[in-house]
């Protein structure tokens, strides 16, 4: 078994003046192609920092990230990110936002007409083709996140990085979008790494759940396989014993063994 994405002994220390804080300690993880992995942990445990390191937006202090056995340490479209707060550029339309990435990634390999078709194809995947000429301010939060997903997908990333993608959405919209992401994963077979703090979301979507201990010096506490068959149906899972067991395991980890002290 060869690892597709490999996090190799990653440490991260933030230094400000004389004071230094160790955020991440010895993070090791291998992810296979097509896998859906969630990273869950209390806020402040460094999970977003870890995602930024994988994305190349921050550099690890020691250790590194290997994608298909090549070290990656700068950002690139092969690790497209769906940001928590969508980060669409407000002066561009929905179409132009997606096209920004497409034009860069496929500048040489696709003709103008092909790029246009590819943008529309990806907007169709997330059911946002109807809003192509709208600006981000004119569409709802869930729609913005859909466009964010389309923008990331359109770059044909090797790994899709989701940074708490549904965190800012209301519960109904969130469920709807989770179903969409599941359907997309089923259809396209992307490798996905998602940061989340929602236990149900992690269990529902992931093949494996990586649970992180509390910071500072956060480590991977436990990795849980979710042996649920796909496609998964939200309603059927509500009474599924495997689902409930997995959920229980994650809850125990988060609220018994690694309770978030500051929250008390």
């Amino acid at each position: 078994m060869t690892a597709y994405l490999k996090l190799d002994h990653i440490d991260k220390v933030f230094t400000r003046g004389a004071a230094s804080t160790e955020v991440l300690k010895d993070i090791n993880l291998t992810i296979e192609k097509g896998e859906y992995v969630s990273i869950i942990g209390h806020s402040g445990c460094g999970k977003s920092t870890l995602l930024n390191i994988i994305a190349g937006l921050t550099n690890a202090t020691t250790g590194g990230v290997l994608l298909e056995n090549r070290e990656v340490n700068s950002p690139g479209p092969d690790r497209a990110v769906v940001f928590q707060n969508h980060s669409l550029l407000p002066w561009l339309t929905v179409y132009e936002n997606v096209k920004l990435g497409v034009d860069k990634v496929f500048a040489r390999t696709k003709s103008r007409a092909e790029r246009d078709a590819w943008v529309m194809h990806n907007l169709n995947l997330v059911q946002m083709a109807h809003a192509r000429d709208k600006r981000p301010a004119e569409i709802s939060g869930g729609m913005k996140q859909r466009v964010g997903i389309a923008r990331a997908l359109a770059m044909e990333p090797k790994v899709l990085l989701l940074d708490e993608p549904f965190g800012a959405l209301d519960a109904l919209t969130r469920a709807h979008l989770q179903d969409s992401v599941m359907a997309l994963h089923q259809k396209l077979g992307n490798t996905i790494l998602m940061i989340t703090h929602d236990v149900d979301e992690a269990v529902l979507l992931s093949d494996r759940i990586v649970m992180m201990t509390n910071g500072p010096s956060a480590r991977i506490g436990e990795v849980l396989e979710v042996p649920l068959v796909r496609p998964r149906k939200r309603l059927e899972l509500a009474t599924n014993t495997t689902y409930l067991k997995c959920r229980q395991r994650v809850l125990e980890f988060l609220y018994e063994r690694h309770r978030f002290v500051e929250a008390a």
Binding site: A55, P75, V81, F83, N85, L89, K104, V105, M155
Partner: peptide, 24 residues
């Protein structure tokens, strides 16, 4: 956020200037 988007898309400095900096 906008800088991160530009970094992931790998805009070069000139594109960053025209497409992100000036409009923002």
């Amino acid at each position: 956020d906008y800088r991160n988007v530009a970094a992931v898309v790998q805009l070069n400095p000139l594109e960053f200037f025209a497409k992100i900096m000036i409009p923002a």
